[in-house]
Amino acid sequence: MEERTLYTVTVFSENRVGLLNQISIIFNRRQLNIETLSVSPSALRGIHKFTITTYTDHDTIEKVVAQIDKRVDILKAYYNTDSELVYQEIALYKVSTNALLKLGSIESLIRQHNITILEITDNSVVFQKTGLYDETQRLFDELQQSIGVLQFIRSGRVAITRSKVERLSDMLEQIEKIRERKSKHA
């Protein structure tokens, strides 16, 4: 059995109902757990981008991505390992205002973790931290041990490849060639 690695799968699709289901079915069939998921409109109008992370081996991810790629409404699917990507996650933490004030070392906490404060009320403070999984987790652990965390949420990964342009543009170029070839035949 090959070693399991965290892969980031990027999927570009038409903006149509039910696409997420089509993609998740393929993960289900191979018993792959989706670690994180992020969906949003891409830089190209009308095209949606899914960023999915999952632990598996190289052989499996290759097959899974090929099977996603061949779905009719999917424009292109890729996979990458961490070294090929620049990526980020965002996390929000709600803590008690009282407990935080009693902690006393707020300034060093904020400097150390590069925290942004989003909201302060009499009862609670909301921190925002962007970073890698380990970094957002470290802050969570620290807060949980010292003053307790009332609420916590972490986003899915968003990622950009280290290559110059989105690889979808190559794909779209190729599609345009096919369209031209077809219209010549017609």
Partner: peptide, 12 residues
């Protein structure tokens, strides 16, 4: 239909 941009039935 003769073309769907997200679907390449006969790859080059």
């Amino acid at each position: 239909t003769e073309f769907i941009r997200s679907y390449i039935p006969d790859p080059e």
